[in-house]
Simulated assay, not measured.
Amino acid sequence: MNPTVVLVHGAMHTPWIFTPLSEQLTARGIASQAVQLPSSNPDSAAAQGLAEDVAVVRAAIDAVSGPVVLAAHSYGGVPATWAAAEADQVTELVYIAAFALEAGTSMMEWMGGDFPPTWIRSADGLAVKAGDAEESIFSGVEPTLTAEAVKRLNWQGTRAFTEKLGAAPTDIALTYIVATEDPALPPAVQEQWAARAAHSARIPSGHSPHLSHTDEVTAILAEAVARAGTAG
């Protein structure tokens, strides 16, 4: 059975962010689906945390009748890492300029204990949003697409950053896509995570290579799907 690609978006995003990537996967005959993480919500008071995100990713994996290639962008790497550690169906975990934290670590600890100074806190203090998304998250993305992406950004629940990663896989093949021009997640850090992966690739993009270099990301995911099919 051909693997399904389950896509996990980053902080503040929605599944819409993977539309160009999903379309290209479909054109290659590869099934895909994108989850909506509950930590990202238009209502700051409704934005949830890491534990709820992991549950949603697990449910998406469990709903697939067959092997899964799990692909995550940015913060999405955290719940994807935890879910992959608990799901037997995942044959490969692909990090797209994503956080590959070690178990027991939180995003807040990684960030040094505080949010970036350009981020905005919600009035209720329960969520945050990037105030410089055009430059940090969508650098190098086509301007019209960037404008639409910024318009669709949600609040991100602070618990997504303070809760610790509960588990990380030890027996699943990892692929890391390094965005070499990323202003949001230092490429040097990405290279450290890539060094631990079985497969790695470098794309000369900002933080969102799935938008600016969709062809390249699609090709890398297709390779992961092919490897899973061969293994099966």
Rank of each mutant, 00 (worst) to 15 (best):
H213D: 13
A85D: 06
M1W: 09
A222V: 04
A100R: 06
G157P: 10
E191L: 07
L185Q: 03
D88I: 01
Q190I: 11
E135V: 01
M1R: 09
V78A: 03
W82G: 00
K151S: 05
L174G: 05
D182N: 08
G229V: 07
G49M: 10
L126K: 14
M1Q: 12
Q190C: 09
A55G: 13
Q33M: 08
V128F: 07
Q48M: 10
L7I: 14
F18G: 02
T105Q: 13
L50K: 08
E135C: 00
T118V: 11
V141N: 05
K164T: 04
G125A: 05
E191A: 14
T180G: 08
I17H: 02
A60S: 07
V225Q: 02
G125F: 05
S106F: 00
H210Q: 11
L101G: 10
K129Q: 09
V217L: 07
T162G: 00
S200L: 09
E135Y: 00
M1V: 14
Q192H: 12
A46G: 10
S139P: 01
T218I: 11
G10R: 04
I30M: 12
G66L: 06
P209T: 11
D124Y: 05
R202T: 13
A184G: 03
T158E: 15
V128M: 11
V6C: 01
W16G: 05
G131W: 06
A133S: 12
D124I: 02
Q36F: 09
N41E: 03
I96A: 12
T19G: 00
I172P: 07
A100W: 00
A224R: 06
N154Q: 13
H73G: 08
I137W: 06
V141Y: 01
T170R: 13
L50M: 02
E148Q: 09
L185F: 14
A147L: 02
S74V: 03
R121S: 08
V141H: 02
V64N: 10
I172T: 14
L50W: 02
L145V: 12
D88A: 12
E216R: 14
Q48K: 15
Q36Y: 08
A46N: 14
A231N: 11
E216Q: 15
I203K: 02
Y176A: 13
G29L: 09
G206W: 02
A224G: 10
P38V: 11
I220T: 14
Q156S: 10
A188Q: 13
